[in-house]
């Protein structure tokens, strides 16, 4: 038990943390746009964003692998201009995770925005406030439960990745060997004790995260 390798756990949390923060920045404008637009392409955008929910991670991983490879456009762009390889690298995992967990951030936020009466935005405008001020001072503070849900779900969903990581990341220790991959690896090597430990930690963690959401959201809702 002493020789346990903590790196996969650390790597997993680093991946989930970075993904969640970036997703918040990307998902917020998307959710806001979806909640307000009357554009005809809205259903198309919604369907695209929700794809990862129903698509097997291996399908998504397969396409990402193709496009991330130096022959694909995104892969070539990243390697030529930013000198970053997206395949079998941590950066690649972050980009893949963002796409994979996008619906888990966008959907709660969109529902949160849509649940607010339109008159709040209108009132803010008539009081001389810009869109930006309205978003940060009126809308976001009033969808705190949705923000929390979106962040926690994205974080948890990224921790639970397996198929996608396996396809685009492989199993490189310290670079792409996240916990779920490590468990698979340990089981294959018949190291059941380590597999047990990793699995147990994930199980407890997942339960704690979900319990926290439900407890905190209940309280947040009450304060309004």
């Amino acid at each position: 038990m002493m020789g346990i390798d903590w790196q996969p756990l650390w790597l997993t949390f680093k991946l989930a943390g970075i993904t969640t923060i970036l997703l918040l920045l990307i998902g917020l404008p998307i959710a806001w746009w979806l909640a307000n637009t009357r554009s005809r392409i809205k259903p198309v955008a919604e369907a695209l964003i929700s794809l990862p929910i129903i698509l097997p991670p291996s399908v998504l991983g397969f396409y990402l692998l193709l496009s991330f490879s130096p022959n694909g456009f995104p892969g070539r762009f990243f390697s030529d201009y930013l000198d970053i390889s997206l395949v079998f690298s941590f950066t690649g995992l972050v980009v893949g995770s963002i796409i994979y967990s996008l619906p888990f951030m966008v959907q709660p936020l969109q529902a949160g925005f849509e649940g607010l009466p339109g008159s709040l935005t209108e009132a803010s405008y008539t009081l001389g406030r810009t869109r930006f001020q309205t978003l940060f001072r009126v809308l976001l503070p009033n969808i705190r439960p949705a923000l929390l849900t979106g962040m926690v779900l994205s974080f948890a969903h990224t921790i639970g990745e397996f198929g996608l990581v396996l396809m685009i990341g492989g199993n490189i220790p310290g670079e792409t060997r996240v916990v779920s991959i490590a468990i698979y690896h340990e089981v294959e090597s018949l190291n059941y004790a380590t597999a047990h430990l990793y699995s147990g930690i994930l199980l407890v963690l997942a339960f704690t995260i979900l319990l926290t959401i439900y407890l905190v959201n209940k309280r947040l809702v009450k304060t309004f």
């Binding site: 008159s119 709040l120 009132a123 008539t126 009081l127 406030r129 009033n142």
Partner: peptide, 30 residues
């Protein structure tokens, strides 16, 4: 709307739930 000098009272009042009464008024000061 920001540049039109209007005061609008909405049917549902549209008070900002996250702000106190004073903060609701102060918000309009900009």
């Amino acid at each position: 709307p920001q540049q039109r000098q209007i005061g609008f009272v909405f049917q549902d009042y549209a008070l900002f739930p996250n702000m106190t009464v004073r903060e609701n008024l102060q918000y309009a000061l900009n």
